[in-house]
Design a protein around this nucleic acid. Structure first.
Length: 371
DNA sequence: AACTCGGGGGC
DNA sequence: GCCCCAGAGTT
């Protein structure tokens, strides 16, 4: 842990030497949380009513996803899968359908697999290592579920907590560093409240830009504020701009229905249905890509027609331009190898029904329905 | 440590 | 446009 200059390191930021400053901050934070805790769908009125299952589901959905976005997804998911056993018994396709539009679909796959493990074992994990052994459960989630739903004294440091702690102590470091820092501040028996208080404070008061320090219970002891370092803490890590990539989507129509194909179970949009297609390879034209997709992924000899339109969609690591090409079928081949795709379906784009679909696929449907 | 993995809201 | 969001897994 590196104290941000020009602040002198008054004390070690490592357990147990935070001293009275740390204890005071924890006390103020808990008092603030008692009055200002957000009311959220996964937070029952009585905190002790939190259970591991609903907490697990909410934490998975909340990964890199805003609270407001998760709300309706959480309600629908818990209505359909009220218990870990109910999810374990469900087909993955149905889980992905409920997840459609939420993004990061590997989360749904991991949650499903994790539920099957828990159902087979017959009980939830009871400690940090047990939770971390489940797919999709890392350091943060193990701490969050354990502290919130099981009363374990574990830190749970997310992006909000990093920001609050970085500013409070005028320090910078890795998430692991801040987890140690949070552990040193944990109030025995109220770790869940402490962790959620850090997150709520970071979300509503100690915001990335224009923090509302006048409303912050920690302002009096905030070293970052005192040093005028709030704008630089935590330091921003510049990430490379997402490159623009082109892709083709094939429009095969039959009596108003579109041919959709299910992507392989892992990787980008794993397990979801889409218009057959692919990213353009290096130096490849769109027409060439259409022909290649037909041959390699569908076993069809295809002739691309005039482009029907294009939809743009931004992902974390690329900006996608999906160009839609109706095709004329010239011949049917037997695929030498199993296709990239694992399933095919003819679907009415106006009523796709219970299929797992990405936002991108839905955007393509909307464009095709407009004309 | 750098990528992969979605999608949306705020400025 | 850019940044960030109750991150985790892989390389």
């Amino acid at each position: 842990m590196i104290p941000a200059s020009p602040i002198a390191p008054a004390r070690s930021c490592v357990d147990p030497a935070l001293g009275p400053e740390g204890a005071r901050a924890t006390t103020e934070l808990l008092a603030w949380y008692d009055r200002h805790a957000r009311r959220l769908p996964w937070r029952p009125e009585r905190p002790e009513a939190r259970d591991p299952w609903s907490t697990w589901v909410s934490e998975v959905m909340l990964q890199q996803t805003r609270v407001e976005t998760v709300g309706p997804y959480f309600e629908r998911f818990m209505a359909r899968f009220p218990t870990v056993g109910s999810l374990a018994e469900a087909p993955l396709t149905e889980v992905l359908t409920l997840w459609s539009g939420l993004g990061f679909y590997g989360r749904a796959r991991n949650l499903h697999a994790g539920a099957q493990i828990v159902a087979a074992v017959g009980r939830f994990p009871t400690d940090e290592a047990g939770w971390r052994a489940l797919p999709g459960v890392g350091s943060y989630m193990a701490g969050a579920i354990g502290s919130i739903a099981q009363g374990l004294d574990l830190p749970a440091v997310d992006g909000n907590a990093v920001r609050v702690l970085s500013r409070l102590w005028a320090a910078q470091g890795s998430v692991a560093d801040f987890s140690r820092l949070a552990r040193a501040m944990l109030p025995r028996g109220r770790a869940g409240a402490f962790n959620q208080a850090l997150m709520d404070l970071g979300s509503s008061v100690c915001t990335p830009r224009a923090p509302r320090c006048e409303a912050c219970p920690l302002a009096g002891g905030c070293r970052g504020l005192a040093a005028g370092l709030l704008a630089e803490l935590p330091p921003v890590v510049r990430r490379a701009a997402a490159p623009r990539r082109e892709a083709v989507g094939l429009v095969l129509e039959d009596e108003g229905r579109l041919l959709l194909a299910r992507r392989p179970p892992s990787g980008l949009y794993g397990g979801l249905f889409e218009l057959p297609g692919d990213l353009l390879a290096e130096g490849e034209s769109a027409a060439e890509a259409v022909v290649r997709v037909g041959l390699e992924r569908l076993g069809l000899e295809l002739q691309p027609q005039d482009e029907r339109g294009r939809v743009e969609h931004t992902l974390s690591h690329m900006r996608l331009v999906l160009r839609l090409f109706p095709v004329r079928e010239r011949g049917v081949l037997l695929l030498a190898e199993p296709s990239f795709y694992t399933d095919l379906a003819w679907v009415d784009p106006a009523a796709p029904g219970d299929l797992p679909l990405s936002r991108l696929a839905r955007k393509a449907f909307e464009l095709l329905l407009r004309r």
